[in-house]
Design a protein around this nucleic acid. Structure first.
Lengths: 205, 205
DNA sequence: TGCCTGTGGTAGCACTGTTCACATGGACGA
DNA sequence: TCGTCCATGTGAACAGTGCTACCACAGGCA
């Protein structure tokens, strides 16, 4: 109906893929995955409904680009989280994950549907395996330092990922009341999680 | 296109809501949540596209009815799982959960989007709290028997749910190779999960 | 200068969820 | 037995979607 595109300099946009990705991310944060519609993204970018398909094969491809941006942001977030936390890195990593999910529920919703799927573009896969390697490094170091219980790092890592991922999921889905979510998550991580030895030591003040 | 409805006895169906729910569940199992379309469900039931809306306010309502069926089935599944397993009930419960997700990935996909949300109809909420109570009972009994580590049953339960839920999620999303998924899940549960004391005792033969 | 190619516009297809006026026929009172 | 009522099903229609043609523009190259 009122498909008034926003103003734009010339006929050619210049960097439409970037603009589309940014608009899609904005829309995602605002209204959730389901509402991220190619047409609405085009509308916000001030471009015709067909234009996005010059740069992205389909909606999924556009969303994949968005995931790329999110993962880049998430990487920085986790680096900061681990750097700032004085407890075991594994715990900081898990808490960072959960906190990111709390802060950006819709991003998490998207990531779930793309990241853990089996068909990812190379760039995405690289980013992911980077994060995974970081996690494995954290685990091995933690085990050597006696912070983490021994065992196959892959299994320990998987358990940690599953716990943290499930927790985030439940938070995002509203199963845990948002106000208490973070504190509860912390409790869970400290009490039962991540194979941290003497984890009770790290309960908050 | 070929909207050939299947044959039906009379003009009036008799139990359309049930038939629609069943068709929707079938479609879900076959093709996944996204493909469960009101129109296709109507087609399969041999009814016009508008008919379902006589019985369900919208697509969500239809899906909620499907969730009801799934939860009833899941309840039975878990009862059997706990009854048949000779290890700690908590472990059987977790494994049952994961196995159900492996067997019915699409159901899990639907449940995730409905069950943990904050707005559920009464009937659904009852079913859920029934399952949760069962879990809490299992935990308390396990703690008294010395099988589970002590601690607030709510937190222990939450941790268990998160771990198992996340694991199932990762399996459903294809992050874990399906062939190894069950074994890996078992390993994770035994090594790091559920607060089971001396969990190494329960590693498979 | 003039064409070529990459980029955007427009129109249109098939599909979706949902609504609404209309058709039907089983149930129930006369 | 008949007539009427009304829950239930029909079919057309609407707005919105992803996606695909085909056409128009404009900037870079000869």
């Amino acid at each position: 109906m009122d498909d008034k595109p926003v103003e734009r300099a010339g006929y050619h946009h210049g960097s439409l893929p970037d603009a589309l990705t940014a608009a899609a991310l904005e829309l995602l944060d605002e209204r959730g995955l389901e509402q991220v519609t190619v047409r609405e993204v085009a509308r916000r970018t001030g471009v015709s409904p067909g234009a996005p398909f010059r740069h992205f094969a389909d909606r999924q491809a556009l969303l994949t680009a968005v995931v790329g941006r999110i993962l880049a942001d998430f990487e920085q977030w986790q680096l900061a989280a681990v750097a700032e936390d004085e407890g075991p890195a594994m715990r900081a990593f898990g808490l960072g994950f959960v906190r990111y999910a709390i802060r950006h529920p819709h991003r998490f919703e998207l990531i779930r549907s793309k990241v853990f799927g089996s068909r990812q573009p190379t760039e995405l896969r690289q980013r992911l395996s980077g994060i995974e390697q970081a996690l494995t490094g954290i685990i091995v170091a933690g085990q050597q330092a006696g912070e983490l219980r021994a065992g196959d790092p892959a299994v320990v890592g998987l358990a940690g990922q599953a716990l943290v991922y499930g927790l985030s999921q439940m938070i995002v889905d509203g199963y845990l009341p948002p106000e208490q979510a973070e504190q509860l998550a912390e409790q869970v991580l400290d009490t039962c999680g991540l194979g941290i030895v003497n984890s009770a030591d790290f309960q908050g003040p």
